[in-house]
Write a protein that binds this DNA or RNA. Structure first.
Lengths: 343, 343
DNA sequence: CTAGGCTAGGAAAGAGTTTTCCCGTGGGCC
DNA sequence: GGCCCACGGGAAAACTCTTTCCTAGCCTAG
């Protein structure tokens, strides 16, 4: 333990057995080893402070205990919630979690996936909404397939349609449920912070909301749908844009909570009160944002659980050809940010 | 590329050169290789889709590109902000970030550090407040030294006193500055949510606050200091306890923002208004929590930058014996959660 | 013209495991 | 008692790189 490393060979020598035997004892191989030698080896390992060299093991086994997790931005509480779920599972399995931050760049994503392949990562969990851009999807699919060909498993959160297992919220139904609740509350005119145009998740939520409106015989005016970044600042800025041209809406639906947060900030800066002047609803029910005032009406998603289940899919599953899809249903939680319209 | 892997040997063979030459070309060795062979090798590598096996490289070089990051809980926005900073640096250096979540368990921490050693991680960044418990500090120091003996570098955030480089906030001064501002605002009676008793950071902030009070000739009543978990729920619960026995304080200082968040929630539940009935101040200025209403008066820490600088320390520094300490000074930001007392 | 020094390239020795293959011993069965 | 099998143990190959050491060839200087 003095300095540097203790190798298995040293353990074997110290125990007076062969390298093979020592190895068999250490990693509890299927092969039988007599109790006597077993004890001697474990004692030696203990005494010398043996710690197996993970690289050598990976090389020999051609499989590591690394699990990748790709998110756009770990400081975004949406991603960090999911990350916590993934972490919980990898931690208790004794796996090593590699965190890759893509900053929404497909190129970075590709680079990280290659790195994970180079490390013979066992699995990777991809979080973040799928783009609707065909080209980038094709490239991502290619990467995923390459990963799988090399024996790795892939699971996605919120990214259906890729050649990998998926756990995804039912965005359409969730948004539609929410819309119906808001209609029941008395709202007739809505504005929507719809996020980026090329994001599958954002689009599904918009569609779901829209279709519930149609079902109730309501129109959604074109000028009441505004697109922008899927972030807090995107929500802020989108709201400013919306209010600059003016709106007749009594309720603002931001397709995710972080945008709703930005929206509420913008409205406050404009001197408007929520929900008195305008109701605001979000989507995700991010734990960290539950303390906003007024408390956000939103669609609850079990984010941490989703991360955990994705990890489970990636790590337990047989590498099947048919991607398994777990759909989780969101539940509308009505809080203080929405109220019957005063107009 | 068909399936499985392409090895360097295959590339060499395809290019009609030796393994050694191929290796030299691939990793741009110091040794000269003629342009002709160089081109042939790169072309072959490209054509075959060669990707170096990271484990083999680690084994051969006895050094990997893994960097560990240890936090208590990644879904806590304090940690995820710092993580974002660390990530930024590792990402642009092409390093691989391993995220370890300790759940505040020294045992888990030890386990993860051992895993990182087994992987020959190049460096590790430890985030989170040092305990004041001597025994666990001794054990952690031992782990760190072992890590360093094996060629790894260690840097800490908010954990001074360990045998490793550190970037730490000046908790004492920050809290004292805050106290003085609050006194200037007219407050004379304070209550403190002091966090866990055994947390160095919490204690320093309490001490700093306390000493500024003393400096102004003010007392801090014993019953106005309440301890509890360093979390949102800890803050909530501590506040309930505080209010249950009653307090004469006009201002409540929670030693970090997440506790302050819980405090504000508790006060709201009790029907008290902030700052009208009671002022509340925090510490950290966590970006995600800036949208709370009322906006929190707090001490701003450049969390992301702190993460980045810790990564820098761990990765640039010479392994020196004398731990380098970077102290960052927090800046008081006065917002809406504090106001002159009405009583 | 030869000795000596460079240089580019290759052979091979590691790096630390796992795992296959082989061997010797001992026990059970006829 | 002999044969076969099972089983515990070891030697060595395999995993894929990096790097050292060596060699052949060429150039230059004496």
């Amino acid at each position: 333990m003095e300095s540097g490393y203790v190798t298995l060979e040293q353990v074997a020598e110290h125990a007076g057995v062969s390298l093979a035997t020592a190895s068999r004892v250490i990693n509890g191989s299927t092969r039988q080893v007599s109790q006597r030698l077993r004890d001697k080896v474990t004692a030696s390992a203990q005494e010398l402070g043996y710690l197996a060299n993970a690289s050598a093991q990976t090389l020999a086994r051609n499989s590591s205990s690394l699990v990748g997790l790709l998110v756009h931005d770990i400081s975004d509480p949406y991603f960090s919630s999911i990350a916590a779920g993934v972490t919980r599972h990898t931690e208790e399995q004794g796996l090593v979690l590699v965190l890759g931050t893509t900053s929404r760049s497909a190129q970075t994503e590709g680079r990280i996936l290659a790195t994970l392949r180079a490390h013979r990562a066992r699995a990777v969990v991809l979080v973040g909404s799928r783009s609707t851009d065909e080209e980038s999807n094709r490239r991502l699919s290619e990467e995923i397939l390459m990963f799988r060909r090399q024996g790795g498993q892939v699971a996605c959160v919120s990214q259906e349609g890729l050649p990998a297992d998926t756990v995804t919220p039912d965005n359409h139904t969730g948004a539609a449920d929410l819309a119906r609740r808001l209609i029941a509350q008395g709202h007739r005119e809505f504005a929507i912070l719809a996020g980026p145009t090329d994001l599958q998740t954002a689009r599904e939520r918009l569609d779901g909301f829209h279709s519930a409106l149609s079902g109730a015989g309501l129109e959604l005016a074109h000028h009441n749908v505004v697109h922008g970044a899927f972030t807090r600042d995107g929500g802020y800025e989108s709201t400013r844009r919306l209010m600059a041209v003016g709106t007749d809406a009594t309720c603002l639906f931001a397709v995710n909570d972080v945008m709703a947060t930005g929206a509420m900030a913008a409205l406050r800066d404009l001197g408007l009160r929520v929900p008195a002047d305008l109701s605001v609803a979000g989507f995700d029910d991010i734990p960290t944002l539950r303390d906003l005032t007024p408390a956000l009406t939103t669609v609850r998603l079990p984010l941490e659980e989703m991360g955990e289940r994705a990890a489970l899919l990636a790590l337990e599953g047989e590498p099947s050809d048919q991607p398994r899809v777990i759909t989780v249903r969101g539940e509308v939680v009505e809080r203080e940010s929405t109220a019957p319209p005063t107009r």
